[in-house]
């Protein structure tokens, strides 16, 4: 359980977050959306403990975040960031093992053998064949999978995602989100994700929080947040919102500002019903 209450944060006198409150239940996938500069990445930094809120409280399992030491926090919480891993000379296996860092003692040993865990992760992400390759020999998509492997090796209770699919093509985007969902369903992980792509956010999240200029605009299931009026208010562009024919989650279609005169959305996609707004 993650509880954020009335959190605010200033940088150089400018308020980037203003009175944000929400809570995330165990096993839930909670998405944070908003335009550039809306404060969503800052919010994630506060929840991950790398920065401190100016006012308000953040509680993890009923204890304030400052209660946990850096090491204790890393034993419970993992963060997957958008830039992924740099092209360094470490091998894939070495990098995944780095996820065990918070569990090792000063000499780098762990009480329990984690060999099976590392092997399992590599099988599951289909990167065993890359195990002894170094990161600088991998593609961006493969490297992000290794980053996910490292995060899995942390065996966290809470997983924070900071736009993890930004630099991936659509194939890898879906693959990445599916890996995460599968892992979550198995281990009862709680996921808090900052997502750029509204369609992915809508398909993979149980609830969404919309942020704009540091303030909460709306919070709720995707059906209540992905609405063309709200999106227009936040992003200054009015999309068409349709329901996904399979998952029935709301999905957006973008259109050029010049075409808005004749609404071609539903006609162009026969069989889809435009969501009422």
């Amino acid at each position: 359980m993650i509880r954020v209450e009335n959190v605010s944060k200033c940088y150089d006198g400018e308020k980037v977050l203003d009175g944000v409150s929400f809570s995330v239940n165990s096993g839930e996938t909670f998405g944070i959306i908003g335009p550039n500069g809306s404060g969503k990445s800052t919010l994630l930094k506060l929840v991950s403990g790398v920065e401190r809120a100016d006012t308000g409280t953040i509680e993890l399992d009923g204890k304030p975040i400052s209660f946990y030491s850096a090491r204790q926090l890393a034993q419970r919480m993992a963060v997957l960031v958008q830039d992924g891993l740099p092209a360094v000379g470490f091998t894939v296996r070495e990098v995944i093992e780095m996820g065990r860092y918070p569990f090792q003692n000063w000499f780098g040993f762990e009480l329990d053998d984690h060999e099976a865990l590392i092997e399992g992760i590599m099988d599951r992400l289909d990167i065993r064949r890359l195990a002894s390759r170094t990161l600088d020999e991998l593609s961006g998509g493969e490297r992000q999978r290794v980053a996910l492997g490292k995060v899995m090796a942390q065996q966290p209770r809470w997983l924070l995602l900071d736009e993890p699919t930004t630099y991936l093509d659509i194939g890898y985007q879906i693959q990445m989100m599916d890996y995460i969902r599968e892992w979550q369903q198995e281990s009862g992980l709680t996921v808090v994700a900052v997502l750029h792509d509204l369609n992915i956010a809508s398909q993979y999240c149980d609830r969404l929080l919309a942020l704009s200029q540091g303030k909460m605009v709306r919070i709720g299931p995707p059906e209540t947040v992905i609405e063309s009026e709200l999106i227009e208010k936040m992003y200054a562009v009015r999309p068409l919102v349709l329901n996904h024919p399979v998952s029935s989650k709301p999905q957006i279609l973008l259109q050029s500002e010049h075409d808005t005169r004749h609404d071609t959305g539903p006609k162009a996609c026969p069989g889809l019903v435009e969501k009422e707004v």
Partner: peptide
């Protein structure tokens, strides 16, 4: 070991519990 994590970037190191 901490320096190894630094090679992945300071933020990655911080998220793994390095001060």
């Amino acid at each position: 070991r901490a320096l190894n994590l630094f090679a992945l970037g300071e933020r990655q190191a911080a998220h793994l519990g390095v001060r």
